[in-house]
Amino acid sequence: MSETQNGEWGVTRSRWSPAFWLPTVVAVVVAGVVWEWVAINNPYLLPRLGQVGLQLVTETPFYLENAAATLSEALIGLAIGLVSAFIVAVLVTESGLLRRAIMPLAIILNVTPVVAIAPALVVAFGFGPAPKLIVTALITFFPILMNLITGLNSASVPVLQVFETLHASRLEILGRLRLPGSLPYLFAALRVVFPLSLVGAVVAEFSAPGAGKGLGTVISVASANSRLAVVYAAIACLAAMGSLLLLVVIVVERRVLRWHESQLSRRA
């Protein structure tokens, strides 16, 4: 009811008013002009935007193929990171013993630069997909773990007391209270980690250059040959994929977290 009102008047009107879109358009145009000016004066610093566009248009299947390879590495690695972070978060919040055992290891893993591990993983696992999945899983694991732990511990005392007087089991408290309550924290992590998964995949591809598909491989090969237009075309693909992943998270979050404070102001 209030949604249609917003859709027809509140939101729609403001989206079409110049005050809404003009700043964005001006900023993009200014950035484009500066880019072109730099590219014309320093051909070895930046390619012309037209050259990048031409690359993408004429070589579309090539970029799609490599983008698909990178995207699948990123998403499978992310899935591994998400599932393992979920399991560890539940174990660590349910048992103090496991928390003291696991958390120091997890933190050491987090402060180690994953970029530094990637070459070693290539040595260990070869040029196939394995090191790429491992790097992506490692890089996404910790943000999800920390947010889930905070989320699982965020249940309020009065609600917990209601569950306790009903003599609810720990599993029931987990499933009916702690897990749903941790969803806002999970989505905050997913907003970070979905785009981050691409970083993991590309970094791992850098460490195994010339092997298989992937935008990271495309970039490192093209850089070695000073083909700037190809490099930036691949970067443009990565930026587009990152934006798309972020968009997916935000859309799903809006549907799942209708009940949460962060979504309430949107409907007010």
Binding site: V159, Q161, W259, H260
Partner: peptide, 8 residues
Amino acid sequence: QVPALLPW
């Protein structure tokens, strides 16, 4: 003291 309902 508070309703302590599940918001979801």
